[in-house]
Simulated scan of single mutants.
Amino acid sequence: MGIRLGIMGAARIAEQQVIPAARRTADFQVTAFASQTPASRKRWQDQFPELRAFSDYEALITADEVDALYIALPNALHVSWALRALAVGKPVLLEKPAALTAQDAEVLRERANQSGTVVMEAFMYQFHPQFQWLSRALRSGLIGSVRHLYAEFAFLLTHPKDIRMQPALGGGSFWDVGCYTVHITRQLLGAPQAVFARRIDGPTGVDIHMAVQLIYPDKTASLRAGFDSADVQGVRVVGTGGELGLTHPFRPDMGEAQQWHNQTVDVVPPADLYGLELRAFLAAIRDPGGLGQTYLNDLVEQARLMEAVIRASQAEALQSF
């Protein structure tokens, strides 16, 4: 039997991706879930009758048949429930964004270290072979010195009652999909020196469009996130000796993913995206002081830059970082 995983929140990502991925590996066994919404709980009970159902999140956390938690609640609830899991020594795979402030991210890291376990932010794209190819290509100097990176992730969302449209729940396109563009830029280029951002808010008060400029000593990055356009995602890196990129960097399972270098285009072979994420989570659980600490540090640095972009968008002025 693998690690017994409890699912907190009846989210589609858990239903359609994480549970099927866990079923494909012997490393994890999903044993229970919790939802405070009766209709969602009933639907999951019908779909997953083998799982123990809870209406109370605390009961799920303390259940004997749960060794680790996957938390897929609205963004504003991530930190509080992750801290409860850490308090009883259970590792957490935490949906992005893990924290809405750098201070909360620091608290997560501190409590994880105190408990001797891990919190890993669920940026699954980074474990896909196409991202590994992109990262290796840049490190090898395939396109010379990097001068500019462009990353975008957007789709059309118009339903005002969607939780991603609710300010009190940590809604907004930047938190939902812009976090991917920030994360991949950090992974490839590191932290910038300065940040500039402009936002367009929708009728509910959350951003539905965010445009970001990250300034480095010898390069720049342009990022875009939105709820206001047709589905689009991509990353393009331009250097002194060429360019390369990915057509579907964040969700390669959504369409025909391609990786390209100058005029050479290759179709990306399918990979078990969420299975790879679960295996990385398992490796972090087994090595909390090494790999686990790496993911905790990444979580903090991600929150720091996300918060800096939000501040820049509110000030509409260049912010040092």
Score class of each variant (00 low, 15 high):
residue 272 D to I: 10
residue 162 D to L: 05
residue 236 R to E: 10
residue 246 L to P: 09
residue 239 G to F: 04
residue 252 P to L: 07
residue 214 L to G: 02
residue 49 P to D: 00
residue 55 S to K: 12
residue 273 L to G: 05
residue 103 Q to W: 09
residue 4 R to D: 07
residue 218 D to Y: 02
residue 285 I to T: 04
residue 211 A to M: 11
residue 198 R to G: 00
residue 236 R to L: 09
residue 59 A to M: 09
residue 37 T to F: 12
residue 81 W to L: 13
residue 7 I to N: 04
residue 28 F to V: 02
residue 65 E to W: 07
residue 184 I to C: 11
residue 131 F to M: 06
residue 179 C to V: 14
residue 293 Q to N: 14
residue 217 P to G: 11
residue 155 F to C: 07
residue 75 N to L: 00
residue 109 R to V: 03
residue 161 K to P: 00
residue 299 L to Q: 03
residue 93 L to N: 02
residue 210 M to Q: 13
residue 80 S to L: 06
residue 40 S to H: 14
residue 204 T to D: 08
residue 259 Q to D: 00
residue 69 L to Q: 03
residue 37 T to K: 12
residue 223 L to Y: 01
residue 304 R to D: 01
residue 3 I to L: 15
residue 222 S to P: 02
residue 281 F to D: 00
residue 320 S to E: 13
residue 294 T to I: 11
residue 107 V to C: 04
residue 196 F to K: 13
residue 26 A to T: 12
residue 26 A to L: 10
residue 211 A to C: 05
residue 191 A to W: 01
residue 69 L to R: 05
residue 81 W to F: 15
residue 86 L to H: 05
residue 240 T to A: 07
residue 128 H to P: 06
residue 39 A to D: 14
residue 233 Q to T: 03
residue 43 R to G: 03
residue 57 Y to V: 02
residue 125 Y to W: 14
residue 196 F to H: 14
residue 75 N to H: 14
residue 212 V to L: 08
residue 320 S to W: 11
residue 189 L to S: 06
residue 94 L to G: 05
residue 131 F to E: 00
residue 97 P to L: 12
residue 137 A to W: 01
residue 139 R to N: 10
residue 192 P to S: 07
residue 46 D to S: 15
residue 55 S to G: 15
residue 228 D to L: 05
residue 124 M to A: 15
residue 188 L to G: 08
residue 113 N to P: 00
residue 212 V to M: 11
residue 200 I to T: 14
residue 310 I to A: 13
